[in-house]
């Protein structure tokens, strides 16, 4: 069957092509991350992918939807990869599985599948698990100190608790936990003392996040994503951290450190750019990114968790429809856009 209605020409770009490009853009980050933590990350990505596809297939079945084209649209894989990257690479298999199921079953399919989810599925998984399993979600490997692959497999599948030698604090968590202890007077000292200080940001993390940035810029160049949300997200976070850092550089990390140490880059280019749960209008995207950046910073610095991107994004997801409604761009020839009222 060929197209019977105008336009008879179609741009040959399908959702699956967009998803494939997002996956491709994650590859540099995955490669660098794997370099620092070992093949455990690849195992997690594979595990998450399999679980995601199985869950998606089952749920599509239950909802009476055809597997093709819905299972093969690539969206489940994107969610799975983001969950795998947001979770500690040495997470036990059940934690990753729980996260993926939360994302695919609860956050996505129960809301009606692709295009219907009000919340970012990967962030639902991340925040859900960090609240339910805070201890396991804090077991981050020390970047650059990869355990032998066999040991990693044991940790992931063998119910062996991760060895302390291979896990420890992340640059963000150490700032958070030590900041109030009074043991150190300067966060730079803490980072150096804990061997977490890198060239310009958290050790190891700086390169992983730079790789995410590269992938994100490529997505921008390919026009898979737009610039508003990432720019507003990173910009607001940089500005806020700059103010605090200027005010008290001993206790507040500098903007470069903030942007390149935690989930900021992944969030900026792969999470706040999620079209389904984010804003769709240009001004809406600016507001969405800005809000998420400010909230992420505040939660990161003053909240109970070392990183705040997940919570910040979920909070902004709630606001997205309202923001969209009030940021309609003007139609051709109109003085100002007001589809609002």
């Amino acid at each position: 069957m060929t197209i019977q209605y105008s336009p008879f020409l179609r741009q040959p770009l399908r959702i699956v092509d967009l998803m494939r490009q997002v996956l491709l853009a994650l590859l540099p980050g995955i490669a660098v991350f794997t370099w620092f933590v070992g093949l455990a990350l690849i195992v997690q990505i594979l595990l998450a992918s399999v679980v995601a596809l199985l869950a998606e297939a089952l749920l599509l079945r239950l909802r009476g939807k055809p597997l093709w084209p819905h299972l093969t649209d690539g969206s489940a894989l994107v969610t799975a990869w983001l969950v795998a990257l947001a979770f500690p690479p040495l997470s036990p298999w059940w934690l990753t599985t729980t996260g993926v199921l939360l994302a695919i079953v609860i956050a996505k399919q129960l809301y009606g599948g692709l295009g219907q989810n009000p919340f970012n599925p990967a962030m639902v998984a991340f925040t859900g698990c960090i609240v339910a399993f805070p201890a396991q979600m804090a077991h981050w490997p020390t970047l650059g100190l990869a355990a032998p692959f066999a040991d990693q497999l044991d940790i992931i599948f063998g119910f062996v608790p991760p060895l302390d030698a291979f896990t420890g604090a992340t640059p963000l968590s150490i700032i958070k936990t030590s900041g109030g202890s009074g043991l150190y007077t300067n966060i730079q000292d803490i980072l150096i003392q804990q061997n977490l200080s890198g060239v310009f940001a958290g050790k190891g993390w700086e390169w992983v996040t730079t790789a995410y940035l590269v992938g994100g810029l490529w997505l921008l160049y390919r026009r898979v994503i737009t610039w508003q949300a990432p720019l507003a997200f990173l910009g607001s976070m940089a500005l806020l951290s700059f103010c605090f850092w200027l005010f008290d550089p001993a206790h507040y990390a500098d903007p470069v450190f903030q942007l390149f140490s935690g989930g900021a880059m992944l969030g900026a280019f792969f999470i706040v750019t999620d079209p389904v749960s984010g804003c769709a209008t240009p001004r809406g995207k600016l507001i969405f990114g800005c809000g998420a950046g400010v909230l992420a910073y505040l939660i990161r610095v003053f909240g109970a968790f070392p990183d705040g991107v997940g919570f910040a994004v979920l909070i902004m997801n709630v606001c997205a429809p309202l923001i969209d409604r009030h940021t309609q761009p003007p139609v051709f020839g109109a003085k100002k856009g007001d589809a609002g009222e």
Binding site: L9, H70, S75, G115, Q116, A280
Partner: peptide, 14 residues
């Protein structure tokens, strides 16, 4: 002629 591909849900990509 381009074939009619199945209609997918809108992902609000804009």
């Amino acid at each position: 002629s381009p074939a009619t591909l199945p209609e997918m849900p809108c992902i609000r990509c804009g």
